[in-house]
Nucleic acid binder design. Structure first.
Length: 480
RNA sequence: GGGGCCGUGGGGUAGCUUGGUCCAUCCUCUCGGCCUGGGGCGCCGGAGACCCGGGUUCAAAUCCCGGCGGCCCCA
């Protein structure tokens, strides 16, 4: 058995859309465009991802809250850039019953404008800072482009947003560093290698001083943003009058940051680790880490079902999420089913194994099969799950690295986009006009410059477009 | 914002140009039964569809109008 990734890479859109339904992640047939139904299996995986998010929030002293989904128009309009960035894509609530509302309400596209009037009430003193909260809720955006399950939707149903307030720009910067560390820990749990870019001025979050974006590269070479961090400086604090009293008795506006993620994390896991047979889930988040498939044989004196249940009990005791598939269908069919659903490890037990007190292990990532002694089963399963985790990361890292190419000219950049695509890194003078024109020429978006910025600085190169001295490396990609 | 294409069982489709042979084809899924079991086996039987509204006509899945929904391209 060999790992094939032809459709995965060459016909990714179709692969992805089919998988979302056949693997039981979501049902897209709900009669509102861009709003899908979470199916039990998909939701379990997402919950497992969120478990790690909650752990990281706990570790770093963020408190969980829940804000209402409706925001009065009057609050929404307080920060000028913010409203300009979102007004074209919000859902309005204009009526209650038969009567028009005096103050219209919006369905939150993100929660800054819901939270910050409350921040102004809650934050009084320097002793209240840093103030760190988060929530995981649904938010709504009227997307006009092509919607895709988990990736571009009108209802983001698992929107994570952390909001913080600080007594200084420096402390807000420290928060951004912490956010990046949180992201790195999470990405490791998902075996996802990624890149971080500082967004160009024209593409930062509406109202932000600057924005960072974390991206993965999808099988078709387009990038997917799966995490963002913004430093707002005092932009929102001034609009919402969020002030604190300093030790010397004077008052000052707070500095703020936000950090966002969503079910795109799941999309990235599905896309990055998959192959032609379906999903391959990292053991860390797989609802079923090990599936046991009994292989009965007629007239055999051995009871494979009892043996399978005994093994399952052993693994369960060892803390492994295990399932015995006792359905009355052929084993081959079960193999395909569980491979589609991405169960990282399969154990086959037939009469031969019962007789010899053994079991056959089949890895989902490499499709290798091998026999182990029952006495060492738990240990071997643990080892193999760890090995799968490492292999998934290594394979994904190799894909990522081989899809980032540094070039000096636009011609070379164009070739990259025509060929295997991915991310192109190219010298840039730093001028907005030049950046926008390069986007046009390459038919790609500027992700920004590598972050931390020291990695973006270059010397002795010319801007690929205007020929002036280049100040930065700029990253371009076709994006989702 | 502009242009183009398309809506047929749960999923994927044939039929539409030239209206009648369509109580609508095939694959898949699903249900019942038999058989089987270390990679989707086979056989028998069953269930399930023309997006909505209006029009033309003796007759509409097919032609026309409107609505709703989906997809693609361009800005």
């Amino acid at each position: 058995m060999k790992v094939e990734r032809n459709k995965w890479q060459n016909n990714f859109s179709e692969w992805y859309n089919e998988l979302i339904e056949t693997a039981g992640i979501q049902d897209k047939r709900y009669p509102v465009k861009g709003m899908n139904i979470w199916l039990p299996y998909g939701l379990k995986i997402m919950r497992n991802i969120e478990k790690f998010i909650h752990e990281e929030m706990e570790r770093t002293g963020h408190q969980e809250v829940l804000f209402p989904a409706l925001i009065p128009e009057t609050e929404f309009q307080k920060e000028a850039e913010h409203i300009a960035g979102f007004e074209g894509e919000v859902f309005w609530v204009t009526h209650a019953g038969h009567d028009p509302l005096d103050v219209r309400l919006i369905l939150r596209p993100t929660s800054e404008t819901a939270m910050y009037s409350m921040f102004a009430l809650w934050i009084r003193s320097h002793a209240d800072l840093p103030f760190k909260i988060y929530q995981i809720v649904n938010v709504y955006r009227y997307e006009t482009k092509h919607t895709r399950p988990l990736i571009r939707v009108r209802e983001i149903s698992r929107f994570f947003e952390a909001h913080t307030a600080h007594d200084s720009f420096e402390d807000a910067e420290r928060q951004i560093k912490e956010d990046l560390e949180i992201f790195d820990n999470l990405a490791k749990k998902l075996a996802l290698p990624y890149i971080v870019s500082k967004r160009p001025e024209w593409d930062k979050f509406p109202g932000a001083y600057y924005s960072l974006g974390a991206e993965v590269i999808m099988p078709d070479g387009r990038t997917l943003q799966i995490g963002t961090m913004h430093n707002y400086k005092q932009n929102f604090a001034k609009a919402y009058n969020i002030m604190y009293e300093k030790e010397d008795g004077t008052h000052e506006y707070v500095h703020q940051t936000t950090y966002g993620m969503s079910e795109r994390l799941l999309a990235a896991v599905i896309a990055v680790h998959g192959d032609d047979r379906g999903m391959v889930l990292p053991p860390t988040i797989a609802p079923i880490q090990v599936v046991i498939v009994p292989i009965p044989k007629k007239d055999s004196p051995y009871d494979v079902f009892t043996y399978a249940r005994e093994i399952a009990e052993e693994l369960k005791t060892a803390g492994i999420r295990v399932h015995v598939d006792e359905r009355d269908i052929r084993p081959g069919r079960k193999f395909y089913d569980w491979e589609l659903k991405g169960v990282p490890l399969r154990i086959e037990v037939g009469p031969r194994d019962v007789e010899g007190q053994k079991a056959v292990l089949a890895r989902r990532d490499t499709l290798e099969k091998f026999t182990v002694e029952r006495a060492e089963l738990v240990e071997k399963v643990r080892e193999t799950l760890d090995a799968i985790m490492e292999n998934l990361y290594a394979r994904a890292k190799e894909f990522l690295d081989s899809h980032i190419k540094r070039v000096d000219t636009l011609e070379e950049a164009k070739e990259v986009f025509e060929d295997r695509r991915g991310v192109v890194e190219i010298p840039w003078c730093g001028e907005e006009s030049c950046g926008l024109e390069m986007e046009e020429i390459l038919d790609a978006k500027m992700l920004g410059i590598p972050y931390p910025e020291e990695e973006a600085k270059i010397e002795g190169k010319k801007c690929a477009h205007c020929g002036k001295e280049a100040r930065f490396i700029a990253r371009f990609a076709r994006t989702y």
